[in-house]
Simulated assay, not measured.
Amino acid sequence: MQRQGSIGGSAAIRIRVTGGLLLVAHLALVAWLMLRPLDVPWVMPANLRPLAGIRADLALGWPEAARRIGEGLGLLAPLGVLLPMAHGRLAVSRLASLLRTAAAGALISLGIALLQTGVPGRVVDVDSLLLNTAGVALAHLAVVPAGRSWLRRRGERVYGTAALQEEAPQGRTPTIPRVGIAP
């Protein structure tokens, strides 16, 4: 029995495996970038006030602010596409998919921030958590709905409509009447 909204057999497996491999590769790259020790003479204190770092970046001027905010948005943005790709479902609620992906991105960003507390030269910044989560959500909104609709159209053309729908139920499960206790 196929899962509801999944693509035909081998295509779904290929998409899930590709998504899973790319997800692992991206997370390994992010871990390498964000969890390396920095050799710095001094470290800024942790930023625990939301939007304070973004305001400070905007005070630096246009090109520097755009670079710093873009880095924050772009670091985990591929997760917005890779997480749904690894999940492999086509017939899901857009809002539920967005919320699930953004929550996973926020948890991954929080995990990175917590791991950075033990790395020399790295400090916690709540704005990076906000920007990373926003980047995941924006990438999801920009790519996933169009990709799912393209895959659904392709699946209908290649596999027929029945391949994209859950199999019809086969009726009630038969029950065996209980036998009473003998006298």
Rank of each mutant, 00 (worst) to 15 (best):
D39V: 15
L48G: 04
L38Q: 15
P41A: 12
P37S: 13
A137I: 09
R67G: 07
G61A: 05
R67W: 14
A113C: 06
G111I: 14
R55H: 11
Q170E: 12
L58C: 06
A168Y: 12
S6I: 14
R148L: 13
L79R: 00
T18Y: 09
V144H: 04
G19C: 08
D57H: 12
L23D: 00
R68N: 05
R178A: 11
R68C: 04
R178S: 10
W150D: 02
S128A: 13
R55N: 01
G111T: 13
T161E: 14
L95S: 08
E64I: 08
A77W: 00
P145F: 03
H87L: 10
R36P: 07
R154M: 14
W150Q: 08
L73I: 07
S10W: 13
Q2V: 12
I13N: 07
L138Y: 06
L131G: 00
A106V: 07
L164T: 12
Q170S: 11
L99R: 10
R14N: 07
L151V: 15
P63M: 06
V126K: 02
D125K: 05
I69T: 05
E166Y: 02
L131P: 01
L23A: 04
L75W: 00
P50G: 05
S6T: 15
R148S: 08
H140T: 02
G155L: 08
G5Q: 09
G20V: 12
N47V: 07
E64T: 09
A163D: 01
E167G: 13
A103D: 08
V144A: 11
A163I: 11
V81D: 01
R148A: 07
Q2K: 11
L23T: 03
L141T: 04
V81I: 14
G53F: 02
T173F: 11
G53E: 04
R100T: 15
G160Q: 11
P177Y: 08
A86V: 14
M1R: 12
L95N: 05
I176C: 04
L75D: 00
M34P: 02
T18L: 15
V17M: 09
L110P: 01
D39E: 13
L99H: 05
G171N: 13
V17K: 02
A142T: 10
R36A: 13
A96Y: 10
R153A: 15
A102G: 13
A86M: 11
